[in-house]
Design a protein around this nucleic acid. Structure first.
Lengths: 243, 243
DNA sequence: TAGTGGTCTAGACCACCCT
DNA sequence: GGGTGGTCTAGACCACTAC
């Protein structure tokens, strides 16, 4: 396990310890070495180790007991808690034990609607890119996701969007924009005929509906997301740790 | 603003700075003093200030720009992002701008079902407490919440449960147990006749359904939660920050 | 009592943005 | 150049738990 100086040490320690938990070097329910031991072994300060362990504890991945030790949480070990879980549908599908694939249903450039223009702080005349994709788990459709962003964000105009990428990667690659945070509203909806067709489910059944807005560090709206989520195949699971 | 030594300094700084953002001492979109200035003014180390600011940044409450400064996120300022948001329904109702109230629908002691016993790691013969409550926003019913926990957890047997408390306070007060983390599954459901009656909504409309499991630091299951959530009145909103 | 995690400090150096 | 946030260190002291 070579710690390389040029890359942030905290990131390297994070990756290494996460790996050790995942590959059962530190078994489920088992105790980790003490912070001092880890610091010495990895050649970093105890503060650095604590930064990483604090992150794990916030995810519920480990349980820390003062005066005792740090233990791997066997209930969380296999849950991918990085990011909020909703950003990257492919990872979500993988975390549920399926093989992810993506079908691009539609991609078009058109003027923004009133609502879209308001949310993106542009004028209704301005052009937006609308990207509609179907995420599948083992070839079974589970999520229908629509993303809308201003066409002016596209740096390389002749470029063809890579529909296999998660939306934050598309922004990064095609627009040189970095997503800083997202606000998501979770709702429920009924399957209509169009959705039933795409998701191969029965009309009238309940679905999860996710409305998302993504912003960069300058608080500029980048993308809108509207997703329909078949929770019968895919668990939308959140872990919340106290403190 | 008196910083008292006996209580954790980080907590005091957290409270103070959160207050300043909330009461517009640092106005929406405005810039905070630099970390060094804050450290000096509050009489703490820069590390301590950074610990607090890192937490705010993770909630999306502030936006930090290297070489520039730290800014209040006007889009998040009024969103209560502490805890995951789903634990404390009364706070959730308040955060949406309503006055919360709670009606206890039913409270009983009975043997655990197979599923309950499995989830709580007890035997089906063992007794559980079932607490059904209706949370209202300005007297309008919005959440029907059922909590189930082993009767053996109750320390004071003659005691009457305080139905006005959030579940983690009940555990604390009546069982001397501290919730360390929770796992929540978010689903959608259709309103049936019973729900329609309690929530005064039409049969067949979609609802959010939350399945929650709460654990203590020893990874012992404490409580199960099953809640039906009327998202038309109450936004279930999550903020996810990148990094 | 020994060892663990919890708290907090002081300060070094770097990368980056502004003017 | 001067100030900002980003990274990292070494070490002190405390609170708690197990033995």
């Amino acid at each position: 396990m070579p710690i390389q100086r040029p890359k942030p040490i905290v990131e390297q320690v994070n990756t290494e310890l996460r790996q050790r938990i995942h590959d059962r070097t530190y078994p489920p329910g088992g105790r980790l070495p003490s912070e001092s031991e880890l610091a010495q072994e990895l050649g970093v300060s105890r503060t650095t180790v604590r930064t990483v362990l604090a992150k794990f504890a916030a995810e519920g991945l480990i349980l820390r007991k003062q005066g005792d030790g740090t233990y791997v949480n066997e209930r969380i070990r296999d849950i991918d808690t990085r990011y909020g879980g909703m950003w990257d549908f492919s990872r979500l599908i993988e975390a549920n034990g399926y093989r992810p694939s993506i079908r691009t249903i539609d991609i078009e450039q058109r003027p923004a609607s009133i609502e879209e223009a308001t949310a993106l702080t542009i004028t209704p005349q301005e052009q937006v890119i609308s990207l509609v994709r179907l995420f599948c788990a083992d070839e079974r459709p589970v999520i229908l996701a629509t993303n809308i962003f201003p066409a002016t964000l596209l740096r390389m105009n002749g470029d063809i969007l890579d529909g296999s990428l998660p939306i934050h990667k598309i922004l990064q690659q095609h627009c040189h924009e970095q997503i800083a945070y997202a606000i998501s509203d979770i709702e429920a909806a009924l399957i209509d005929e169009k959705l039933a067709n795409l998701l191969t489910r029965a009309v009238g059944q309940p679905l999860l509906k996710l409305r998302e807005r993504f912003y960069n560090r300058d608080n500029q709206p980048l993308v809108l997301g509207l997703s329909f989520y078949d929770f019968t195949l895919l668990k939308l699971r959140m872990v919340q740790a106290w403190g």
